[in-house]
């Protein structure tokens, strides 16, 4: 095309680290993953949080190309999962297994390193994973925590753009866990994207920039830890009270919901002070209690069996 048009220079769109669209995966009649879409930017640290059977591992397997979605597409830095793996662009630390017992720690790394076009030096990843001293030890002689560090070292070899971790700190002691996350954060600062599945709420709370809450194969919430906590909304004020004026309470600023059961009123609110002040000064309320919601409450509220499939999911 040669006709002279004014060219608009667009900023190059940043390639997403993970661009998954409408993933479905069924095993027989069971839909393990049922319409999951993910857009993860380079450098983000994202936690997949959810109860057993929520679809975390199935989703990870599809991101890694270990299983093929029944429907939907996955793109990792603009490549298919297999294409991204062939370029050393994505690596993963699995929960268990995956190591040969009859190799030493160093041999395992040397062998794996030969399979990539470019890798970091073996000595460097040994040091980063904190296993330099056990480099010549046979894998079968290593403790569970040491084996987990070796898996981490293997994942670091290709200096991947995307690191996927399935329950990464299982078997590590408290100190090991803290060191591990320090190393992960340092890497994220270099532009490494990290996606991890965990059932440790504190871990997701403390280390993830973003938490994706999964329930029954669907995303039920997606946001920062603070945003997720807010989804299960602030605090609950309860009190004993004769003839509560429900509309008046519901009209107070910050109140999300009011329920009355027997002589007890329970108010879900973002501003517990206003509710407490009202109840104690304008009514005959007694036994007033204020409880705050934490991530665990949000987790239970959003992923529990009786949770409504909330409109909260769109709250991102």
């Amino acid at each position: 095309m040669t006709h002279p048009t004014t060219q608009t220079v667009e900023a190059p769109a940043t390639t997403l680290a993970v661009d998954a669209r409408d993933l479905h995966k069924s095993f027989g009649a069971v839909a393990a993953v049922n319409g999951v879409s993910l857009a993860i930017k380079p450098g983000e640290i994202v936690a997949f949080l959810g109860p057993n059977g929520a679809g975390k591992t199935t989703t990870i397997d599809m991101l890694l190309g270990l299983s093929v979605p029944s429907h939907g597409t996955v793109s990792i830095y603009g490549h298919t999962p297999r294409g991204a793996i062939a370029r050393g662009q994505v690596s993963a630390v699995m929960q268990s297994g995956g190591l040969l017992k009859d190799l030493t720690v160093r041999e395992t790394l040397e062998l794996t390193a030969t399979l990539f076009a470019d890798t970091r030096p073996v000595d460097e990843v040994l040091e980063r994973a904190g296993i330099t001293e056990i480099a010549s030890r046979m894998v079968e002689k290593c403790s569970g925590g040491q084996q987990q560090r070796l898996r981490f070292a293997l994942a670091l070899l290709s200096d991947p753009g995307l690191l996927i971790l399935d329950e990464p700190t299982t078997g590590m002691d408290v100190e090991g866990r803290r060191d591990f996350w320090a190393a992960i954060r340092a890497d994220a600062a270099r532009g490494r994207t990290v996606v991890f599945a965990t059932h440790y709420l504190e871990e997701a709370d403390a280390y993830a920039d973003r938490i994706i809450l999964l329930r029954r194969g669907k995303i039920v919430a997606d946001g920062s830890a603070a945003e997720i906590k807010n989804l299960a909304a602030g605090r609950t004020v309860t009190a004993r009270l004769n003839a509560p004026d429900q509309p008046a309470i519901a009209g107070l600023p910050g109140v999300d919901s009011v329920s009355v059961q027997g002589g007890k009123v329970s108010v879900h609110t973002k501003d517990s002070d206003v509710v407490a002040r009202y109840l104690l000064t304008q009514t005959d309320a007694v036994d007033l209690e204020i409880t705050s919601n934490n991530l665990e409450d949000a987790f239970v509220a959003l992923t529990g069996d009786d949770a409504q499939t909330p409109s909260l999911a769109e709250g991102n």
Binding site: G130, D159, P160, A182, R190
Partner: peptide, 16 residues
Amino acid sequence: MSTLATPSPTQPERVS
């Protein structure tokens, strides 16, 4: 056991 180390100076600044 030693701790996990932060990136060594030889490591490239950005992930390629």
